[in-house]
């Protein structure tokens, strides 16, 4: 494992910790998209089915379990927690997730390495992760003054993807025969989706202003 991959994973981990701390400390999930969190849970569960039949390393196993449990925990807070659930604004979080999930499933059934249940579900999770942030970005755009921690959460998530791009470049240069086109193309699209957000995040940070995305 190279430094970019490790830094990417740690950034991903940190983004979730920031989100959980924000929700727990402020007892509010204002500006957090439940739809995106549910899509991530679906992504993690369909991708990490291999927990049941393949072992890579203790590190991988721990991270997989952490991602599944933490997104489940965020969803529990938003849906079930007595005070946090009252701060969830479902009227703003209206993205139609089936418009994301269905095309991803059709694509996964069409473009995959192997037509088996686990391989199609794994491919589906790769495609779905690329677009799962969209409900969150739309919600941020509708929120006039974005909460600093929510902004940081999305920034860290985008940073994790950018670091994965560097990880792939490093692996291409150092590992003969290494290639994974489905992952590369999806990951590049996923990172590109954050470009607009990065621009406004860095602009607001430099000007010392609250983040607000133009609609």
């Amino acid at each position: 494992m190279n430094i970019f991959r490790f830094a990417g994973d740690m950034t991903h981990l940190l983004s979730i910790i920031v989100l959980l701390l924000k929700i727990n400390a402020t007892k509010s999930c204002a500006g957090v998209s439940l739809k995106t969190q549910e899509l991530y849970l679906l992504v993690f569960v369909t991708r990490y089915l291999d927990l049941l039949y393949s072992y890579i390393s203790l590190y991988n196993t721990f991270m997989k379990l952490f991602f599944i449990c933490s997104s489940g925990c965020v969803i529990w807070y938003i849906r079930e927690h007595k005070t946090v659930s009252q701060t969830y604004d479902s009227a703003q979080d209206t993205f139609r997730v089936l418009f994301l999930a269905c095309p991803c499933m059709i694509l996964a059934l069409t473009v995959n390495h192997d037509f088996t249940v686990t391989e199609v579900l794994w491919t589906f999770s790769i495609y779905l992760e690329a677009v799962a942030i969209l409900p969150q970005l739309v919600l941020l755009q509708r929120t006039k003054n974005v909460d600093t921690l929510t902004g940081n959460y999305v920034f860290l998530l985008g940073g994790y993807r950018a670091l994965y791009l560097l990880n792939w470049i490093y692996r291409i240069l150092t590992e003969p025969g290494y290639r994974q086109w489905i992952v590369w193309i999806s990951g590049t699209i996923q990172t590109a989706i954050y470009c607009d957000f990065f621009y406004y995040y860095i602009k607001s940070w430099r000007n010392n202003e609250r983040l607000s995305l133009p609609s």
Partner: peptide
């Protein structure tokens, strides 16, 4: 036969 890349990333 196409070799499948190992799923060693997260």
């Amino acid at each position: 036969v196409e070799v499948q890349p190992p799923k060693d990333e997260l």
